[in-house]
Design a protein around this nucleic acid. Sequence first.
DNA 1: ATAAATTAATTGGTCGAACCAATATACCAA
DNA 2: TTGGTATATTGGTTCGACCAATTAATTTAT
Lengths: 232, 232
Amino acid sequence: MKKIEAKRTVDLALEELRKAILSGKFPAGSTLPPERKLADMLHINRQTLRSALARLEAEYLVKPHHGRGILVLDFRTTGSIELMSYISEKEPLQELFGLRRNLAAEAAAIACEKATVHDLNQLRSIAQNQSQIEDPHDFLQGDLNFTKAMIDASQSLPLRLLFNTIERITLAQPNLPMNALKDRVAAVSSYLALIALIRHRNPILCRKAILSHSSLSAEENAELHFALSKEQ
Amino acid sequence: MKKIEAKRTVDLALEELRKAILSGKFPAGSTLPPERKLADMLHINRQTLRSALARLEAEYLVKPHHGRGILVLDFRTTGSIELMSYISEKEPLQELFGLRRNLAAEAAAIACEKATVHDLNQLRSIAQNQSQIEDPHDFLQGDLNFTKAMIDASQSLPLRLLFNTIERITLAQPNLPMNALKDRVAAVSSYLALIALIRHRNPILCRKAILSHSSLSAEENAELHFALSKEQ
DNA sequence: ATAAATTAATTGGTCGAACCAATATACCAA
DNA sequence: TTGGTATATTGGTTCGACCAATTAATTTAT
């Protein structure tokens, strides 16, 4: 059972304002109502409103101008990727998950150079866990953890930070795609394949295995099975 | 000449706090000094401090707990990709630019399906501009604009938002790598090659041309030159 | 009558103080 | 030792005032 925490009024105001901006109720290029008036409209104090506005500014949704007003920005041209947390349309989400795959491929490729024994054991541990999980949400989290472990093995700060963001976005979705558990056998075997490929330091096949834009050639397939045969 | 704008005290406080956290002066897992004390330390009002704290919270650097204090988070495990704006070490930046290439490749591939005549003209216009620019910084901006135009052609919101962030990070760097202008001829011809490949709707070659993990085969090279020959 | 200067009104930025609410600590009693 | 109670600490919210940048309105000088 997830603990329900009472939200602060600043969070409620933040959500309402963000929703109004993303929906176009406050159109890009216009200015928000003056702070004093907006605070009255939301029935909150001006200082509390200003805390919410500070966060909207951090998300590049608004830009205040002293004496002139608070400009509503066009989130499509200035917004940060974190905004995807508040977007639940099918197509953008699929494109985002495509990005996540790219991220994993990049991480796996770099991990081929840098992965230590400890990193590999971590990956094996997660893969084994995944083979026993029944709850779909736990399986999704395990899948995220596997990618996270590959990124940690790559020791790349940008990859890790971007993954943090994408993980947040994923978990913020109200209707998560839980189809991964159905193909659990395939998923787990692909984990093992990746571990083997990283251990054999083969970044090119790592990328292909994750992206699979083109299926593997007979030669590549043989190489993969050779690597796999070394894993017990 | 870039206009220098006087910063708000909230921005100064924000920068100081962020720097202190990223440098480990406020270690992850510890709590910040109480708001009242911290405000005194920074010689600012508590409300102004709280606006800065609201932004730090949006960046996932701190998490306040009512009655307990403000927890300093481990930015490596929770931070957002936007944090890269404040990191200037060589290796992470190179990895980030690698990500930017991946992003461009993904955009080009999707653009192959969706690009309109207008999109292609936009790309051609930017490519031609680039061939005449002398200032290195303008050339970098033009290069960013070319990628941006490909992303717009892909009509992908996540790609666009992520690009917004990466562009901000790039332009926030104090010592930008300005080596692109030296290979301008090569850069411009690669623009033209991409335009041709998008026009011929060849996503696979688009990816290869941008990523160039493996050089093109003789067959692929012929295909590319055929596509190029159709552009005047 | 027009243009420049001045004044007033609007609006974001900062400040100070007070009080509420959640948590942690110290203390006391059973 | 345990359990509860009072107290202190700390973040959350509110009110009111004033500062500072900008714009609009008014006045003044030419």
